[in-house]
């Protein structure tokens, strides 16, 4: 009998424990991002002066990054589909494409932030920019974590190992996508 991780085989809650754990992570992340975005909305609605600062964010880069994350989510779910079919090599290819999407997102964000900081919009320039860098920065940290985990899972999936993890990292990635779906209108469109 082989020694398998309990998260792989145990299903006491009606779903594999690994997936249950990811949903717990997502639930806790809702509280973290929810608190941050809720605070931003309070300040934005209560203080008209925020609009002057929000006018300086680049809507086109924000839209491009939304497109990139939506596309990377498509690759993540196609990886899940391939893993369910037992095709580890295709699942790995899809995860590599998802990770590439994450890297493009971070590259665009680095370019965007560099431009903004060069124009004097630093984290301490105004409360709006404090929220902007904190929310987008926390989100970017989640993108970095997702890319690292995805590359590890893809390397295993390529050898047809631990294919159930393809779905788990996909779940996390879709959540990161959903957070950005709300960050985009808040930071780039409501001007």
């Amino acid at each position: 009998m082989s020694a398998r991780p309990i998260a792989t085989t145990r299903s006491a809650a009606g779903m594999p424990t690994g997936r249950l754990a990811v949903w717990w992570v997502i639930a806790s992340e809702i509280v973290i991002f929810g608190g941050l975005l809720g605070s931003y909305v309070m300040f934005r609605l209560g203080h008209d002066a925020f609009a002057d600062q929000a006018a300086h964010t680049n809507t086109w880069i924000g839209a491009f990054n939304t497109f990139v994350l939506l596309t990377s989510s498509l690759f993540a779910v196609l990886g899940h589909k391939a893993a369910d079919a037992g095709d580890g090599r295709r699942a790995a290819r899809m995860l590599y494409l998802t990770a590439a999407g994450g890297m493009i997102f971070l590259t665009a964000k680095a370019f965007e932030w560099t431009t903004e900081i060069q124009h004097g919009f630093t984290i301490s320039a105004h409360t709006f920019w404090s929220f902007y860098y904190t929310a987008a920065g926390l989100h970017a940290l989640h993108v970095v974590a997702g890319i690292v985990i995805m590359l590890i899972v893809a390397a295993q999936a390529r050898k047809n190992l631990e294919l159930q993890r393809v779905e788990l990292i996909g779940l996390y990635w879709h959540f990161v996508d959903v957070v950005w779906i709300f960050l985009f209108p808040l930071l780039y469109i409501a001007k």
Binding site: R4, T8, T9, S11, P16, A83, G86, N160, L161, E162, L163, Q164
Partner: peptide
Amino acid sequence: AHDSHLET
């Protein structure tokens, strides 16, 4: 691993 995945 594949069997484990199908079992899950």
